[in-house]
Design a protein around this nucleic acid. Structure first.
Lengths: 199, 199
DNA sequence: GATGAATCTTAAGATATCTTTAGTATTACA
DNA sequence: TGTAATACTAAAGATATCTTAAGATTCATC
């Protein structure tokens, strides 16, 4: 069923009764986006949470010079939204775009807030999910402080092998805080090192 | 009273009944640390959350070369802990040390988890707090991707004026991902620019 | 399957930031 | 209040990363 994945994702942290699951599913709808279509446009206010059933998306920021900087990727079983825009109810400063044709589960956040007051288990789910996300963000932050570009990329490949081979290099580059050109020289180096090691 | 601050902090997001507040206070204790004392040592498992009643602390990571990288500062009314260590129940990879003699409110996290199952309002408080923290971390992440060192420092001074004048420069430097020496040249430049502007 | 668009690759010169070192000022604490 | 420890400042040479530009591949779409 179309909501199986999201329910299984939630069950990692909390157990909902069948009745709670059914009530939760009433909040959900399916949204499909084609490759290159925007899920969220800079300047719009983000009112929804999304869970990826199928496909691949990226969240990016455009600086004054017009350069794009990727902040987040999402593939199957990941959540995506713009927390800043959603919590402050302010215009978003970034875009979310599909890198592949994608199928998403959509939840209106206001409805979700209301639901959480009645089902504390779901509140708990998000509290625990956010804890985990904060650990991940903290880790990325730390890496930016002390790792060299090459180390960051090696780590990225280890940590997200599924992404490394699915996303164009130029997008990984700006996610790591590098220009695509410089990234490429590192990429060549890392591949060479890997080849050497596997001999 | 010694728990007034933390209760007021919680009331920003949720309303607890007097009975709930009293029960919550039963979980709390006061811990004082002298300047330079460690609140958490690398390798130890973090089992507590702390709220700063008075003082100033920093969380930092030591790299292979022995260089310190600051990840987080906390002053009055801020929370501090090592989320990674606490959620994974794994040895911490960083230290928390007092920059000034400080007074903290301490909560054992296991007790807090149990309490949250009984008082969903508190679960909600942390869910909302984490949302806010994630927005902040996301913002810092973004800055590291596209801002120049000077821009990052100017932003830091705007955003955290209380910290900018309270924390040694070398610690702000590594928080921004810079060496203290290079930071200093920027510092001089930013001060000069500010002086010019205020003429 | 052909064609234009997007992406990757490479390289040379420019720049931001780091490293090392040393001297000066400030602060902590006895 | 004096003194050692810590923090700040400054400058020269080294290095990582960026910028620009151009050619080579790969990919998307008709």
């Amino acid at each position: 069923m179309q909501y199986d994945n999201i329910l299984r994702n939630i069950s990692r942290y909390v157990l909902l009764t069948p009745a709670q699951e059914a009530a939760f599913c009433d909040l959900l709808s399916i949204e499909t986006v084609k490759r290159k279509e925007l899920l969220l446009r800079e300047g719009d206010v983000c009112t929804d949470e999304y869970f990826v059933n199928k496909g691949c998306l990226r969240q990016y920021f455009v600086d004054r010079k017009g350069l794009e900087h990727n902040l987040y990727f999402a593939i199957e079983d990941w959540w995506i939204s713009d927390l800043y825009s959603r919590t402050q109810m302010a215009p978003s400063y970034c875009n979310i775009v599909a890198l592949e044709d994608s199928e998403l589960v959509k939840i209106n956040h206001q409805a979700l807030e209301k639901f959480m007051t009645k089902v504390p288990e779901l509140e708990r789910f998000f509290r625990l999910s956010y804890e985990q996300s904060m650990v991940n963000q903290h880790l990325k932050n730390l890496q930016m402080l002390y790792m060299t570009a090459e180390e960051r990329y090696s780590y990225f490949r280890e940590r997200f092998p599924a992404l490394a081979n699915r996303i164009p290099q130029k997008h990984i580059a700006t996610f790591l805080g590098l220009t695509p050109q410089f990234f490429n020289t590192i990429h060549a180096k890392v591949l060479r090192a890997k080849k050497e090691a596997s001999k």
